[in-house]
Simulated scan of single mutants.
Amino acid sequence: MTESFLPRINGVTNSVCRLAEHLAARRHEVLIVAPAPGPARYADQPVELVPGVRLPFYRSFPVGLPTGRLHAALRDFAPDVVHLASPFVLGAGGLAAARRLDVPTVAVFQTDLAGFARGYGLGAATPLIWGWLCHLHRRADRTLAPSTPVLAELERRGVPRLALWARGVDHERFHPRHRSASLRARLAPDGEALIGYVGRLAAEKRPDLLAHLSGIPGARLVVVGDGPERQRLQRMLPDAVFAGFRTGRELSELVASMDVFVHTGAHETFCQAVQEGLASGVPVVAPAAGGPLDLVQAGHNGLLYAPDDGAELRAAVHALVADPVLRMRMSRNAHRSTQGRGWDVICDQAIGHYTEVMYGTTPHEQAA
């Protein structure tokens, strides 16, 4: 059960899709419950669509409304476990239905809705949002956190039965071999170092910080993504290349062809974009907050900066642009740092959590 699904592309959708594919490939039956509009099937598994509404402070994240059909759909499908992806509204209905049907639940804390609300000037609502989220996760049989900072925050707020569950990376799509000399020649005809940003161009990602990267000698900024802030950013950054939204081979080549990967969001529970940059062999400069703290080892595969310090961001990027030898060393380390994080490994971990909540055992007890 997911608060967001295709055709919307985001971290929640991506992880649900990879998990559904993995489960289907291993002959598990899956029912996806998601907000409309969307596909009727995915990975040859049924999708139950419910009415969807957009959150006023986070328009790109529509949530589903639980209806009477939700309980009937779960009852008819008779699941062994209910997976709640970033539960908020639809997830609350799914949790209630699962409890009535006596089905165990695994809830994934995936979106920092309170942080996004603050970013949109709705800070007064954050205690209510946190209160609701903690209420939901306390009722789940297990809550999976994507990073150690999120795990610590949930523990501090009194959420029980916690475990760490990171995100996988597609090593076929994100790999240094996709680096393209012809693409680099088009983007940097004078041999400039390419500073890349990949992500939604919206307030919650704080792309305004990219303005601090203007005018770095010997470098050119490439912005990959789209969103409501794009036109304003184009006026702010007239010398940058705005590539728009890209997927597939185009995205693989763009990311691998960068020399420095920059992230600006400070409310990332994991930050898949950072992991994909690292897997592509690109040193990452990211804020020292949230998910990137688990991914970026400062001085090894990238650099961290104080989340609100644009001058520190610029200094970190400038240091990498000015030192090709350092970039090359960090590039090798970046790719290596993502080994063992393929989606097959991560999805098998999820299946392990399902098994544990179904049987009330730990892996050690199962082995015994």
Rank of each mutant, 00 (worst) to 15 (best):
A240H: 00
E172P: 02
P62R: 05
L187Q: 03
A256H: 10
A286R: 02
W165E: 10
A73I: 03
H267V: 15
L313Y: 05
P127Q: 05
L237N: 10
A181Y: 02
L95A: 10
A211H: 12
T264F: 11
L154V: 06
F261I: 10
M358W: 05
H171N: 01
P287G: 07
G52K: 01
D76M: 04
H135P: 00
H137D: 08
G265A: 15
G265C: 15
R161I: 10
Q275A: 14
I32M: 06
G244E: 00
R246C: 09
N333S: 14
V285P: 07
A243E: 08
L154S: 11
Y354V: 05
R99L: 04
A368R: 15
G94M: 07
V325A: 15
A96P: 04
A185F: 12
A36F: 08
C347S: 11
Y305I: 01
Y305W: 03
L254W: 00
M328A: 15
E365W: 01
R8Q: 09
A140D: 11
F245M: 07
T126W: 07
E29C: 00
V222W: 03
R332M: 09
I9F: 01
A367N: 06
V321P: 02
Q272I: 08
A202L: 01
L201S: 07
I9Y: 04
V159K: 03
R27S: 15
D259Y: 02
P79F: 00
V345N: 07
L19R: 07
T111L: 06
S182Q: 13
N14K: 06
L303N: 05
G119E: 14
D208M: 11
D76K: 08
A125D: 11
L237G: 12
L65H: 04
V357T: 04
G310E: 03
H135A: 14
Q366T: 00
A219V: 00
A311V: 02
P283T: 03
N10T: 06
L49V: 04
A311T: 09
S86V: 12
L326M: 11
H335S: 14
A322H: 10
A289L: 11
D170A: 13
E253P: 09
A316W: 00
D323G: 12
T264A: 12
R177V: 14
A24Y: 06
M328N: 14
V63L: 02
R41G: 00
V223Y: 07
A117G: 05
V321F: 08
G352V: 02
D226H: 06
A298G: 12
M358E: 12
A298L: 03
A288S: 14
D309T: 04
V53E: 10
R100Q: 14
R167K: 13
R249Q: 14
D348V: 12
D80R: 08
T143A: 08
A279C: 13
A85Q: 14
G158H: 02
L19D: 01
V108L: 15
L136Y: 02
A181S: 04
R18I: 04
L320E: 00
G91P: 06
L194C: 03
L254G: 03
K205F: 12
R157W: 08
A98V: 11
